[in-house]
Nucleic acid binder design. Sequence first.
DNA 1: AGGGATATCTAAGCAGTGCTTAGACTGGCA
DNA 2: TGCCAGTCTAAGCACTGCTTAGATATCCCT
Lengths: 219, 219
Amino acid sequence: MRQGVDQHADSGVDPGGRPYHHGALRARLLAAGLDLVAAEGVGALSLRRLAREAGVSSGAPYHHFPDRAALFAAIVVDGHDLLFTRLDAARAGSSDAVATLCELLVAYAGFAADHPAHMRVMLRPELAEPAAHPEVTAAGVRPIELLRSVVLAAQDEGAVPPGDPEPVLHMFWSLAVGYVTLWLDGPVEARCAVLGTTPDEMIRRVASAVEELLRRPPA
Amino acid sequence: MRQGVDQHADSGVDPGGRPYHHGALRARLLAAGLDLVAAEGVGALSLRRLAREAGVSSGAPYHHFPDRAALFAAIVVDGHDLLFTRLDAARAGSSDAVATLCELLVAYAGFAADHPAHMRVMLRPELAEPAAHPEVTAAGVRPIELLRSVVLAAQDEGAVPPGDPEPVLHMFWSLAVGYVTLWLDGPVEARCAVLGTTPDEMIRRVASAVEELLRRPPA
DNA sequence: AGGGATATCTAAGCAGTGCTTAGACTGGCA
DNA sequence: TGCCAGTCTAAGCACTGCTTAGATATCCCT
């Protein structure tokens, strides 16, 4: 029926027409999905619920996303873009490679703090079914390559062990992913509360400890 | 009906009786759940499916686990026990604190390799709803306290920055959780395949890089 | 301006899920 | 023996992802 039309006319900020939500439905679903993930976690996100909140039928989202995983995939691609921008800015603002490595760590956590919904989805790759949505895997390449280049620079400075950069790369990659995982999942937040600090402050202290190690004279 | 009785009599290794699965159903659900998580991931686990595979009705599991989260909580508690045992053995087999820290890292990854189903569930705390099942949070305390004691010992040796041990603790905690997350989620496995190595070997090389940093003379 | 292709949406339905309820059955204990 | 507590079945509610058939709106093209 014209239920969709009426509901849109009721709630629309543009009463001039635009039935069937026009091309705005896709963007609206994405935005509502991010809000929902931020508020109640990834488990609470269902296409039916997003459709209900948007005032459309439960089948409507499938014209914009082939399946639920495709919506998650769109979030992941968007998130990796935002993340790369942020990491790149952190790199530009640092002096030497050691400082850059530490700033990348802090920037990664800062991104998680500012875009928790994006990060929550990015940390659960199975949600986006990367096997079915290859753009997800491709989107994650740029941040890693950025990190790799900084590790190589740190090797040139003698700050990290020479030779194959991959172990050191995996070390920083794991450190960043692990801290943010523990933050968003709760344990770090809980422990910081007991310690009388915040996760935001703690990652900076972790980065300082790392920097202290990297600034030691190589044996 | 006596459908349950018949099915059990058909498939039972103990045809002498034991209708209604006796007390074995709980253990059987747990074991089948771990198998399912290992084979198809946490998303594939449903109480209805476990019940089907065990040959009982879909309501039967609820007499052993109040809800799905309670089954995950049981897995997490069991997993933290196994993990602590393994970490404790690694500590006992190492010489100084620096070696111990590196061995803990390798042992953590080794646990993930040997008990991937346990680890997958442990890495997703929301599955066990820790707010509703406090034993989950309690079970995670021992491994962290073990790590903390080793970090303190490393401070005594001058291997890590002195003062508050929490930043260094969070560093190793994040490193371990991050690496295992990236391993079980796929990215590390994929990258190692390209590099012509294995995640098992890579974590050992990461640990070596960490050791090299820790063995540098403090500034 | 009219007309047809196309994108968008609705309504209805299937199979699966977590969880609840009422009732039936069993084993063990007094 | 009789009864009770623990265990299970059967049925049902509300929710989910996803599909299908059909209706409606928009846009472009002659």
